[in-house]
């Protein structure tokens, strides 16, 4: 009995310690004045985790927008309110689907790659060698990846929304024959730039920080064996998906739930 309780206490202490390490890690690696070379490293990471994720994010956005329009139309047409299709597609994409789905795809496409890359660097003792020759791995390896993630995911979310709304337009107007003017007109009269677009982007920024942080920290903190790398990669995807979905509820309750 006593042993179980002390095991529980050890788990709690380990958890708190890991959270403290992760917080220190984020603070240490994200501050600091970027040098000319740091900017170049950052650009390379934006290319890898942003530009190369574009294809999967945009294709998913197009299909999600199209499915939303199709599903929304079959429901709205029962009430004779298919003119509201534009506002339904735009609001559900901007407020909810774009930030969440883009963050989940980002965690799968870029987060896992970040964890594996940094983990392999640690397992092959590249990070230790860097410290030996006087290069700070936090600033050289970790900081560019963190900042690239903070920038890339909000941009990907914008792309997701735009392509999704266009997909909704294709299905709703071009295929199902909703009137063009009411599709855009209803959308424009109901979408508020600060309240809907702005809050969606704020959500996406929060998700970007959380997902990139988890991915990079899992890579930096793993046990340097092949099994450790595989576990850390899995943990990145699982933890960041759960964190995104959980935080999404909290943020939605604060932003749109009338709590203020």
């Amino acid at each position: 009995m006593m042993r179980q309780i002390s095991a529980l206490g050890r788990r709690g202490c380990d958890l708190l310690e890991a959270m403290g390490r992760a917080g220190l890690f984020l603070a240490q690696s994200s501050v600091g004045v970027p040098s000319r070379e740091g900017l170049y490293l950052w650009l390379r990471q934006v290319h890898f985790i942003g530009v190369l994720s574009l294809a999967i994010v945009l294709v998913s956005g197009l299909f999600i927008g199209m499915v939303l329009a199709l599903q929304g139309y079959t429901i709205l047409v029962d009430f004779g309110a298919e003119q509201a299709l534009g506002q339904m597609v735009a609001l559900s994409l901007l407020r909810e689907l774009s930030p969440v789905v883009a963050a989940l795809l980002f965690a799968g496409r870029a987060g896992s790659a970040l964890t594996a890359e940094i983990g392999l660097m640690k397992a092959t003792e590249q990070l230790t060698s860097m410290e030996m020759i006087g290069v700070d791995p936090l600033r050289r390896v970790v900081a560019p990846r963190l900042w690239a993630g903070f920038v890339a995911l909000p941009l990907l979310t914008v792309g997701f929304s735009v392509v999704g709304i266009y997909g909704g337009y294709l299905v709703g107007v071009e295929w199902l024959g909703v009137f063009d003017g009411s599709f855009w007109g209803n959308m424009q009269s109901s979408v508020d730039f600060v309240g809907d677009v702005g809050n969606g982007m704020l959500k996406s920024l929060v998700f970007a920080v959380v997902v990139t942080w988890i991915a990079v920290f899992q890579g930096y903190d793993l046990i340097p064996t092949s099994e450790g790398i595989s576990r850390a990669t899995t943990r990145t995807v699982v933890y960041s998906s759960l964190a995104v979905l959980g935080l999404d509820f909290v943020l939605t309750a604060v932003m749109f739930g009338g709590l203020s």
Binding site: A90, L94, V162, M187, Q188, F193, V197
Partner: peptide
């Protein structure tokens, strides 16, 4: 695009 076309600024 989101500002001008979607939210009608």
């Amino acid at each position: 695009f989101l500002g001008l076309r979607v939210s009608g600024l």
